[in-house]
Amino acid sequence: MNPRHVAVIADGSFHAKNTLRRALRDIDRRALNAIVHVKRHGRRLAGYGMVAQAFREQAAELRALADAMQALMRPLIYAQMEIVRDQQTWLTFKRLCAARMARETSRQNRSQAQIDTVEKKLRREAHTHRQRMRAILQELIRAVARLQESISAQEYVVVNGRIEAALLRADGADLLMQVSADMATAVGNTRQAVEHYRQQLEEVTHEIDADF
């Protein structure tokens, strides 16, 4: 496992998780504000009520999808660290082999058979761990893709909200314009963070696949 991949996945996951947590809290809070604002103004802003409710529902879906994605981060890092451990074991094994071969030329054949058995076992374990990590990584990328679809849906709701707010002529419409604009910023930040994380994961996947 390349140390750069370790850092990209570990730190990328940490930052994605924290950015998402803040952004989703922000989206949820703004959706709730919109609902409260519409209720306060009664029928005059009723047209925006549907939008505010859609904000809220979409925010809940985003949170559920983000939870599903985040649940894969820890197993991925665990699997990655198993590979790091395998590499260290392999290195130690190779050093032992080299030392033994240098000492025991007369019994080389017998030693070689033992070494081959251990080598096969280590290779098998390492292969299993790499497959596991690759499977989790792919599952995580699929979870990220689902989250991105949901973000696109939320962006669509945001655009509708901005149109709806622009069409309103009642008191409080300015505030709804502001709510919609703030929501657009929050959703945009989420989209950027998730896109960046996906790029990191895909880049690592390509490099790992090349190593396989």
Binding site: V6, A10, D11, S13, H15, M73, I77, M81, E82
Partner: peptide, 19 residues
Amino acid sequence: GFEVFPSVLSALIDVMPMA
């Protein structure tokens, strides 16, 4: 220790960046 390293690091990454 060597054996618990994957568990330790993955638990730590929940709360802090590795960098």
